[in-house]
Structure formats: C-alpha cells, structure tokens
Design a protein around this nucleic acid. Structure first.
Length: 590
RNA sequence: GGGGGCGUGGUGUAGCUGGCCUAACACGCGGCCCUGUCAAGGCCGAGACCGCGGGUUCGAAUCCCGUCGCUCCCGCCA
C-alpha cells in the first residue's frame, strides 16, 4: 500500500501514528544536517523531516531528491517543536519524521516553477499542460469545476431530471455556426457533424415523453476563438415539457443561486431574485445585451436636448434617425484632453466618429468640447439628465443607435474595469428577456433568428411575423453574469405549421427545410408537448466563479487561439491510407 | 479576412532615442558550506548572441522590410 493517508489530512491528533504517504516533492530545504521535504498530493502538503542521526538511510535518500520527484515516505507523525508550527499550512502543526524515503520516480527539472504562482508564457503552459495542472491554481480550478458539475447533477436529479446522453456523431446544420465534420467510411462522400448543441435531440426527447432532461453536454463550433470561447465547450443542457418561460427561468435561477451559496461561499450575489431586463431596456441603459450590473454609469438618452441645440455634431447625429446618449464618469473631471482622446480611439472601431465631453471641475469651471454652442438652460438640462455633480466627466456620442449603443456600451465596461468598479467577489446575475424574434441581416438580405430557429415567437406576436417581423418578440431568455452571457434558452415551437412558417420567414427553402429538419417536423405531428429549456455554459460560469479571465483556465486540456492542441499536436495530417478509406483527397495544404 | 500587443539564458523581466551588451537582474539549475526550515540562508558557478530571414550602417538585441509564433480584439459565434 502506497498511502495510508493523504498529505493534506494529518493533524496534531495523529501524533505518534505510523503513516505511509506518497506524492510529489513540492520543495526541498537542505540544512546540511536535517532535510525538509514538502510532500504534495491532491489533498495538500505536509512537511517531511529527514534527520541524519534519526534514520541515516532516509536522510541519505533525501539528499538525492529534487523538486517534483515522486516519493513514497514512511514515517511517524510528530508534533512540531514549539514555535516551529506553520500556520500557513493546514498540516502545519505536525511533520512526518521519515523512516524510509523511497524514490518512486525521479523528475527532470520542470520547464517552469510549479510551487509558486508566477506568470508563465501560455504556450509553454499548454505544451506541458500536465505540469501546469499540478499548480495550486489549476488544481483548484479543476476541483471547482468538478464541484459545480457535481452540484448540478445532484440538483437536477433531485428535481426529477434524468441525464440522457445524445450522440456526438450527428447531422450537419449549416444554419448555425460552422460545423466540425467527420467523414464516414461506410458512406463515402458523406459526413457526420459534431453537435453545436444537442438542441434537436433534446427536443425530440421531449417528444419521447422524458419531460425533464438534462445533460452535461459537449458542444462543438468551428468558429474563431476568443478569451471566452473554445471550439469545444460544455453546457448544462436542459429541456422541460409543459413549461412556460417563467418555469424554466425559476428553475435555473434557483439552481445557480443555491450553487453559488454552496460551491463559492466567498462570493456573493449582488441581487436575489435576479434583476430582469428587457432587451430594449438593457440596450438603452447599458448599450449591451450582456450588461455588467456590478456598477452603475448608465447610458442616458439626451436626444431631445441635442435636437436644435446649435451644436452641429449633435444635430446631425439626430438628423438621420440617430440618438445622442451620454454617460457620467463620476469624479473624473480632471482627465486631460489627451486621456479623453484615448477614449475616442477606444470606441472608434465601433463606428463612433467623435466623443463630446463636458467636464465639471470641482472648482466650478467647465471644460467642454461643445458647451460654447449650447444655451445655458440646455447645458443645465443636460447636466441634470446625467445627474452631474462637480467633479464629474460627461461623455456623449451622437450617431445611429447601433453605433451609440455599441460604443458607449463598450466604453462603459472599459471605464468600469479601469476605474476598479467591478468587485471581483460580486456575482451580478440577471435575465434578459423579450429579445426581438428575428434580426435583419444586411449581409444575407434576410431575417435571421436572434436565438435559433426552433425558438417560439411570443404567441401574441405571431400575426407580426407577416406584417412586421422585426417587431415580433421571441420567447427567449438570456442568463447574464457580470460581463458574460452565461446561458440562453427559450420556449420552443412544438407545432409543425408554426415551425414551417418560421423556416419560411428566415428564408429556408421548404425543400431544404424538409431535408434538414424533416425529422423534427414529422416528430411534431406525433403529439409534441409544449416545451422549453436553457443551456448555461459551464466553462464560462466556472471561469467567473474561479475569478479567471480566460476560459482556458478552467478547461483541463484547452485549445489555443488557433484551435490547436500544442501538447499533443492536434490537428495533424492523416495517414494516406486513412484518407483513402474515407474517400478523401486533400486538395491544398497551404 | 482585418487591427493592436508581445517574441532577449529553463521561467519572468530590463536594455531597444544604434557603439560603454564579449547582454543585466530575479527566480530556477549545478557545486560547496550549514542539524529547524517552511519564498531557508551563505559562497561559487553554468546557462541566451537577443523568434527567423534580409537590409541600412564602420557598427544593431536596439533602425527598416519581410516572415513565423503567441496573445487580445473586430468580423464570425443558428
């Protein structure tokens, strides 16, 4: 037996116990006589002492030991001498007096330090991911993720859900993101696709009468990476029958409220119940449909005050159906012209052509790019609208609505981070509802579903689908946490006629629709219950709960930004024989 | 597809308005000393020719061009 105990569990109460421990050498301190070894396993760290005159052989063995060697140590638990305790260590009251030190496997010097949390180039970490995962931080993240998933499974089970696995080899649906394709050997020229989500399958499980389904589901999307996006990711996939929007939202809210309390007690919810914003409200107040509610600095509409104000930029902005909106950067009136120009540069990529400012210095002086154009009462009204006080800096963008929202929304987040307004221990969950059912795609010249093509429109808005599709609301809801969309769901269509109508609306040829989704349409004719669901992203959620800023930190073996696994070297070329079996010829490898 | 940032010993950085750099510092690594530390300590030492290629120059880590890699972002993500 290698282990009688783990390295993290021994306490003063174990004094005198003979133990056998096994783990990695976290650190070694050689005092010429006595040698200290910090032995680490997944459960903690314990100090081993090897005295030359207590057990010469054990001491001799400890001389050759280096960091990250794998050892088995037999010894006796001793209370540490008075004053020698280490309060920074859970096992700091005791130490193990070594009787035998056995080197199970030596280790090369690792390419980066494992026993402290120092920045290391990420490609090096990813190449040696198995070493990176030994670090306290990464081990903690993996444990956190396990606890999150465990809590979810227990909760779902307790609420009558069953976990059903759905296929990884499925059918391509080019309507959504790019699919990962898997060639079929048995069907030359044909392909499976990896699921972008188990959407269709979970709906078919509702047809099957499961009523309450969930799955910790792996999803695949072949799109470009971001700090919060991986080509394969995990979502808590949920679907329920005989439910309305409120039922699904209530379940998810209860689940995650309890999860936070149990799994990350050090963090606290900003609000419970979670605030609920309509899409329109989220855009108007925060410029985004995934607003960070941890701080205020809300956008204010000043279009009415800008109109006929005499300031050309404002008037022209309004003239073409545009808005003027502003935000109040509290207490930053002293920012220099240069700093404000930098903010303009920050929002320029989002289409903003200018950034008007009004700084109310604490001395009562006004610095502004436009104040001289405005009448005194307008200026007053403007300040009142933004609840400005001396010391505040007011920033305005005038443009078409999409540009105003995009640039001020981004600017708000940027400023919030820069000014330290985002409390990392605060979890500001909220719901976004009443999304537009479809959005006009200028590129494709057609209506695109704002969620996915199985989402039901609000029933009272169905007539609008013919007259004014852009006005119709969808029965969609997004779960937002701090700065991230961590989940989305909807009530689905369960009626063939309505589903076909939606296909038609988004320009899906009926023949193509039947080819791709015929199984869905047919299923709807066999007694499909009203149903809906939600799919919270496990990776993003864990990222926020772990206090990480990149999704890779909560994934054991993530892909890099090029969607490559630099440790194993995936993707790789395939053997010519494999390709031949699959009837595949590689045309260009550039 | 586009834009920004970065690329110096094993790791993290400094140097980068060209010559004092035959590249510095910290950690790590090796050796020696040290019987109580816990980021142990002291002394000594090895280790990069500055991502790669080309150019400018008497002279380049430092300037220019190209290229590759990593990263952040835009597009994209039903």
């Amino acid at each position: 037996m290698y282990k009688t105990h783990t390295c993290g569990e021994l306490r003063a109460a174990h004094e005198g116990t003979e133990v056998s421990l096994a783990g990695w050498v976290h650190r070694r301190r050689d005092h010429g006589g006595v040698i200290f070894l910090d032995l680490r396993d997944r459960w903690g760290i314990v100090q081993i002492t090897a005295h030359p005159d207590v057990e010469p052989e054990a001491h001799a063995a400890a001389i050759d030991v280096r960091n990250e060697f794998v050892l088995q140590v037999r010894g006796v638990v001793r209370r540490r001498p008075a004053g020698m305790e280490n309060p920074g260590l859970a096992t700091g009251e005791i130490e193990i007096e070594a009787r035998e030190v056995r080197i199970l496997n030596p280790a090369r010097t690792p390419p980066f330090v494992i026993n402290e949390d120092k920045p290391v180039d990420e490609s090096v970490r990813l190449k040696y991911r198995y070493l990176d995962l030994r670090t306290e931080r990464m081990a903690r993240n993996l444990v956190l993720r396990h606890r999150v998933v465990k809590f979810i499974r227990d909760y779902m089970d307790a609420h009558g859900f069953i976990e059903v696995e759905t296929p990884i080899l499925f059918k391509t649906t080019p309507e959504g993101a790019r699919d990962y394709l898997v060639p079929s050997r048995i069907h030359p020229g044909k392909f499976y696709a990896l699921p972008q989500s188990p959407q269709q399958l979970k709906q078919l499980l509702m047809v099957a009468g499961i009523e309450r389904y969930f799955q910790i589901a792996r999803c695949f999307r072949d799109e470009d990476q971001r700090g919060d996006r991986q080509p394969e990711f995990t979502q808590l996939d949920v679907e329920m029958s005989f439910v309305e929007r409120e039922d699904v939202m209530a379940l998810a809210e209860d689940l995650f409220t309890r999860l936070v309390a149990e799994v990350v007690p050090a963090k606290r919810l900003q609000a419970s119940p979670w605030p609920r914003l309509t899409y329109a409200e989220a855009m108007a107040r925060f410029g985004k449909d995934n607003p960070d509610l941890r701080f205020a600095m809300e956008l204010k509409d000043v279009t009415d005050l800008a109109q006929g104000s005499g300031f050309k930029v404002f008037e022209e902005g309004v003239a073409h159906g545009g808005h003027v909106r502003g935000l109040n950067v509290k207490g930053q009136a002293e920012w220099s012209r240069k700093q404000i120009d930098e903010l303009l540069e920050f929002i320029r990529p989002y289409g903003a052509k200018g950034l008007a400012y009004l700084a109310l210095t604490s001395s009562g002086e006004v610095r502004s790019s436009f104040a001289k154009f405005l009448a005194a009462d307008r200026l007053q009204a403007l300040q009142a609208r933004l609840e400005a006080q001396p010391g505040d800096l007011l920033l305005f963008v005038a443009d078409k609505p999409s540009v105003v929202f995009e640039s001020l929304g981004r600017l708000r987040v940027h400023l919030g981070e820069r000014l330290g307004l985002c409390d990392p221990n605060l979890l500001a969950f909220c719901w976004i509802v009443d999304f537009p059912f479809v959005v006009w795609s200028e590129a494709e010249k057609r209506w695109d579903p704002s969620h996915h093509l199985f989402t039901s429109p609000a029933l009272e808005d169905i007539p609008l689908l013919d007259s004014a599709p852009g006005q119709a609301r969808g029965q969609q809801y997004d779960m937002v946490l701090n700065n991230y969309e961590v989940g989305g769901g909807s009530i689905r269509i369960h009626d063939r006629a309505l589903q076909e109508k939606v296909f038609q609306l988004i320009g899906l040829d009926p023949r193509v629709a039947r080819e791709r989704f015929g199984h869905m349409l047919e299923a709807f004719e066999y007694g499909t219950p009203p149903h809906g669901g939600i799919a919270p992203g496990i990776d993003r959620l864990c990222m926020v709960l772990a206090g990480e800023e990149n999704i890779r930190e909560v994934i054991a073996f993530p892909k890099n930004q090029q969607a490559a696994d630099v440790m194993a070297g995936a993707p790789s070329t395939a053997d010519p024989q494999q390709l031949q079996e699959l009837s595949i010829r590689v045309v260009a490898a550039e």
